[in-house]
């Protein structure tokens, strides 16, 4: 058990590496040095066992496990409905993260973590199908790799 300064609890941790919208990024998580669990957002001490954490980056490809959508804009939201939301599973870190989807994506699709601009000037992380950036630049049918092909 490492000591935790009270001041460590005052700052809200960064969620992802800053970049331009659409660029690949990483979620900033904490890997526990004791129980090996991963926490997102990052915490100075593991919420599960209390041991120290080391900075860990969650990068794609991840697997989109489930998805849904929000069809009415909730109070306080700056993003306007409708919009898609999904759960991305990072198998190596054994953690699932809820985030906005850049487009409608079928469960089982491999996704990257990207910087997403859900409203003008807003920056957050989002999940985008692997290969979608290339696809959007190229003509032809839109297909996204399935988890079975990439894992």
């Amino acid at each position: 058990m490492t000591s935790l300064e009270p001041a460590d609890l005052l700052a809200w941790p960064e969620l992802f590496l800053t970049a331009e919208p659409g660029a690949p990024t990483a979620l900033l998580a904490g890997g526990c040095t004791g129980c090996r669990r991963t926490a997102f957002p990052r915490a100075a001490r593991c919420p599960a066992c209390g041991a120290a954490t080391r900075p860990t980056e969650l990068r794609g490809p991840a697997v989109l496990d489930t998805c849904t959508a929000v069809l009415s804009t909730p109070p306080g939201a700056l993003v306007e409905a409708p919009y898609e939301v999904g759960v991305a599973r990072f198998p190596a870190a054994r953690i699932c993260v809820i985030g906005l989807l850049t487009e409608r994506i079928e469960p089982g699709t491999m996704v990257d973590v990207v910087v997403h601009e859900p409203y003008p000037g807003g920056r957050t992380f989002g999940f985008r199908p692997v290969g979608a950036a290339d696809r959007d630049l190229a003509p032809g049918p839109r297909t996204t790799p399935s988890a079975e092909r990439l894992l």
């Binding site: 929000v70 109070p75 306080g76 939201a77 700056l78 993003v79 919009y83 939301v85 859900p118 807003g122």
Partner: peptide
């Protein structure tokens, strides 16, 4: 909340 993830039914 601001990114639309702060809604219970989700």
């Amino acid at each position: 909340i601001e990114t639309g993830l702060g809604v219970n039914p989700l």
